[in-house]
Design a binder for these strands. Sequence first.
DNA 1: TCCTCCCGCCAAGCA
DNA 2: TGCTTGGCGGGAGGA
Length: 813
Amino acid sequence: LKTPLKQASTSQLVLTERQPDCQPLTTPPKPKETPPADPWTPTSNLKMLISAASPEIRSREQRRQLSDSSSEVLQTKHCLQEHLLGDEYEKSQPSRKEKSLGLLCHKFLARYPDYPSPSQKSYICLDEVTEELHVERRRIYDIVNVLESLHMVSRLARNRYVWHGRHNLPQTLQALKKVGEENKYIQQIQMIKRREYEHEFDPDGERNEEMASSFGSSEQSEMSFVELPGVEFRAASVNGRKYKSLRVMSQKFVMLFLVSTPQIVSLEVAAKILIGEDQLEDLDKSKFKTKIRRLYDIANVLSSLKLIKKVHVTEERGRKPAFKWTGPEVLPNTQDIKLEATSTTCSPPISESITSKEQCSKALFPSKGKQNFTRHSSLIKLVKSIENDRRKIQSAPTSPVKISASTYLLIIFLLETSFSLFLSQMTAEEMQMKCALSSPEAVPKPESSQQPALSQPLGVCPASHSSVSPVILPHPQSGVSYAIYLHPSQAHTVTTYSPGFMLQPLPCANITGIKSNNSKILNIITTEEGDSQRGPDEPTKSLAAEERPETKSETSSQRCLKRSQALPESNLIKRRKSDEESLDTSLTFFPSGYLIPLTHCTHGNKAECSTKEKAGVCSLQHTAYSSPITGVIPMPASELKTVNIPAFHITPLNIMLSPNSIAAAPVLSNSCLNSSSTSSAPNPSSSALNFMLQHIGLIPAGVQVPANPVLQHVPVSSQSENISHSSGSTNVQEGKVTEFTFYSPINESNFLFSLQFLQPKEPQEPQAVTENFFRTPGGPNTEPALSANSDGTQRTSQGTLYIPQRKLEVSED
DNA sequence: TCCTCCCGCCAAGCA
DNA sequence: TGCTTGGCGGGAGGA
């Protein structure tokens, strides 16, 4: 049994990639030709190893020669060591980088083909490897253990492993994803992030206790090595150490990527989850540090396999190392994979008919048997057909459309509530949250009829700790705006029913990957993902980073408020994908979503848009329509290309409306809008609250909930800097902001969201509401909301819904 | 200063 | 009992 030979092209590719300055692999020079007097350089050993990986020297004889030469080189090294002074010798040693596990793994992988012939088994002899690579066995174990976790190798006997290559990788990843879903890793991630967020405001809170309960007992959550059928697992030790082994850690680490959306996992979160599964009560620094060390080891190997890539996630608390999944996309299981676990405490067999996603679906949306709604060409045709029908309906003379702010808020709240319920497993009592709405029941958005037909998308981020993020954007063809609600686990089978709204799954495998027909009107809502795609030198990022205020002495509520004010500017800079390069980098982040037409609960007369539509200026109508699937219009994937959805959003919601919108609101007086004093702020109507609560089923129809006392009106003096940066608008820079801040009635320190009303210095004439009621800031060239308007006169008339998010940037090293 | 992770001790367990 | 395997954490290089 001999170590199999690696294909020449592969080894050269891998090694030259890692060592771009090395020579093309040719027949290596005989080591004997190396003059002994040559100084031992840090790269000489590496060059020799590269030569060793060359196929030309793969014959037994040549390998023997190489081995001889290696020993000679070692002798030379020792000799050199004797003759050199200590410092000189140390300097002559390979640098730390050149001895890194990642590079070693590259060299290791270069020895074996990615896809070995199934008929010919490849064997790995550890002694051989350690000798040829000149490393300690210990290091090889690190590599092999991680490879074992992916079933790329398996242990055959002492000192001997079988090389499987990447043949098993898709199956393994699929299995790991499934197990990860069943272990609710996504929820654990969310929980940790939520705890982190809350910890900012409650540093003395009983964090561990809550976290322990969220993780469940360590026994229950303990999971051992995930095996594949046909890949025998023969760990050297079958004691308790196995459950802490690098193999299991590696698998768990990979699971985190596979269940996350986006597939970025910070080391901190990963370590906490791994610790949490072991012994949460021992969550001390040293243990955390150790986990981090091991994760680095694993990450190095995974990076060498090109499964992950290191990035940095910058959020408000600083820059954190993280890794982004760059491996193959793991599609949802189409057939159950029988997994075997070596632990009795492992998850139940995965062959159960009800998958995690289905369970999620049922938990979330318990009714209506509709399930899959697969995006298919026929579906697109159907959508077009429906849209045509709707156009015909809408072409009838109607009155101008008014969009209710409560419609938006209702959606936001509904989504937030529903998903929070599911993800955080809120209690029923918590669900009785009395969330007051300060907004008018109908806040029309004055808008010029000359508004470009294809307007800005609207970004909406839920208020807190939900793992899904809706984005509302107009639908140019249909004239209806939609909330796109993305499921973090790429749910593809979820169908929901909710009073007044229907959520339609949009199972786009890659919603950002399809070229838009109207890309110029689509804008990026900058998110963490968006940031991650942004080059480090892009101005928006630095702008956002610079403008983030930081005051350590502020109180929690102040921080909340500050966050709510600061976030828009830093995160809602819309970004337009103007070239293919940027498009490419935006791929694969949001594989699924739900579309929620915002036609429900429109108020006032319908828009008379037949003529406008002909003129191409009024294609968006927020009118109720009655198509065969009323209320359910899948968003063509082409329009989703440039939409980035925030994924981490333990985020306050910050809604900014134009004063003109407010002016048109029947229940909000101008005095309120014009006032920046707390005393004069009127208590907002509770009708919107009742409307919303009824819609989400928290209270029966007819029951009225009084205006919520937890609503706080927070006057904000001219936050011109915030506003101007976030919107890019110049004509609101000097505006006043009246802000309503919503707190949870359960925990008043729990900031939910804030509603800000903008009043520019020069009031605009109230105008008829159009589809462009809400806008996201930014856009093409970072000012899409403005640049979309050709005349620029409508900017102040456009209501703006700013969705702040936690400051979080992802940068790649 | 902090991140990153090499390095090797040493314990568990196998042959 | 020697060897293999691998958990673990000190501490140093590097950013």
